[in-house]
Design a protein around this nucleic acid. Structure first.
Lengths: 251, 251
DNA sequence: CGTACGTTTGATCTTTCTCAATAATGGTGG
DNA sequence: CCACCATTATTGAGAAAGATCAAACGTACG
């Protein structure tokens, strides 16, 4: 329910270290950043299209998603974020946000003043590079999503998204990758995969019927990780993990 | 046919200045970067998935595209690049490339050693920020493409892509946005929009039949920019242009 | 002037969407 | 604790966008 972490930004550090090495010194500097902790409801906006960013929210608890809509209101979810992820790296250096970020669940965020984070990025090379690399990895994930939506069928898309989510949770020590909480409605899953909710429902049902997916309320389980991975055509390369961990489940 | 620019990197400077201001001093520093000019054939790889980047190619002449494929060979084009764009900002700070970049046409690239560019990025704040911002704008374009492919129909997708291309060319002074060279096959257009070549062909035909698109060999013309823009649900916000230019055609 | 590549067209098939109705589920006030 | 309401999930039937298959037609270039 609550993280066992002692400092709200510990998970951010963990996240940055997935992609770039940090020393004790950098840990201390990051922990010294000014921030304000805030509870947020499900659906609350962390960033709104057109906003001039003033602060950078880091997820401490709960999940968030990035979203934008077409002129006639169709919504596309662009990414899903888990605790430890800084939701504003994509906007912080731009004059105004080009998309929205909303909470998927109730949660807690730590808000860091934008300027403090910019100053730190510019003054400390190690941290600056870690933030830059993390941002570039996000861009890599955007590209994989484009491939996913553009060139995979519904079944593959959904399997791929689930695999990515599972692996990212495990990388953040938020649970084993074969069983996790997926606090997302089928409508949101549809918006993330470029499908309709009805079709998402049918695909999920058929994955269950095949025995490669189990669902119980919001809990998802993969009885056979390898098979799920194959269905989703999932490979970790695009996540750019520095040292591939020794997941039982990841070959 | 050839650019009237005197220095191969002039167009890169123009590109960076679209998103961040640079002074005379920075111009000079950028022009002093070491680089090697090279002719490249259509289809030549500039980056290959798995590569450890050693240099950063800047397009001087010709077009390029970014691409990755699914396990069973379906290809998705992730972005298209025009002269002045640095094709490797997305990879330069990562250990290995997660996608491919290929020439769309025959062309000329200026290759800058990776380390020189990294050193410059880290040592000069103004240029570092310009490169960072330009990279973030690329990420914004990836997001818009995800929306395009995930939530727009074939006709809208194609119109949107054409509008984006037109505007980016005009921003780089490479031609008026209502008439330009589109050196891309219908198969590539399909790979960029998540469609099949056959369907792309039919949509193009129908846009022509409606009179909103004219094609003559590789030249494309929009008789009514505003109508094309509406069809593609196109807005410039996601391109993050610093000062919106006074295009005749852009309201 | 033939070969390879790209475009165009027709016919048919499939995936996914749409519309509509019903069933669960979760949270809320009494 | 229970009844009620709003969301969310599920299912069916039919429609449509886009895919697939196959063939013919152009065109650029060696």
């Amino acid at each position: 329910m609550t993280t066992p972490q002692s400092h709200p930004l510990d998970l951010l550090i963990k996240k940055l270290e997935t992609h770039a090495p940090l020393g004790k010194e950098e840990h201390a500097i990051l922990c010294d950043l000014p921030f304000k902790v805030r509870d947020v409801d499900a659906g609350a906006h962390l960033v709104r299209e057109g906003d001039k960013p003033e602060r950078c929210a880091v997820l401490v608890e709960g999940y968030a998603y990035r979203q934008k809509t077409t002129g006639d209101g169709a919504r596309q979810i662009l990414s899903i974020h888990i605790p430890g992820e800084a939701v504003d790296f994509q906007n912080m250096f731009l004059a105004e946000a080009d998309h929205n970020v909303q909470m998927l669940t109730r949660g807690v965020v730590a808000e860091i003043p934008r300027q403090a984070l910019i100053d730190l990025t510019m003054s400390n090379r190690v941290i600056g590079e870690a933030i830059l690399v993390t941002t570039l990895v996000e861009a890599s994930i955007f590209r994989e999503w484009t491939l996913n939506i553009g060139r995979r069928n519904a079944r593959e898309r959904i399997a791929h998204l689930l695999c990515e989510f599972a692996v990212r949770l495990e990388l953040q020590d938020l649970g084993p990758n074969v069983e996790f909480e997926l606090p997302i409605t089928q409508e949101q899953l549809a918006d993330a995969t470029g499908l309709t909710p009805v079709h998402v429902n049918r695909v999920l049902k058929s994955l269950q019927a095949e025995g490669v997916l189990e669902r119980n309320r919001r809990t998802v389980r993969f009885p056979e990780w390898q098979r799920m991975r194959d269905i989703g055509d999932f490979s970790m390369r695009y996540l750019h993990v520095r040292e591939t961990p020794t997941f039982a489940a990841i070959s």
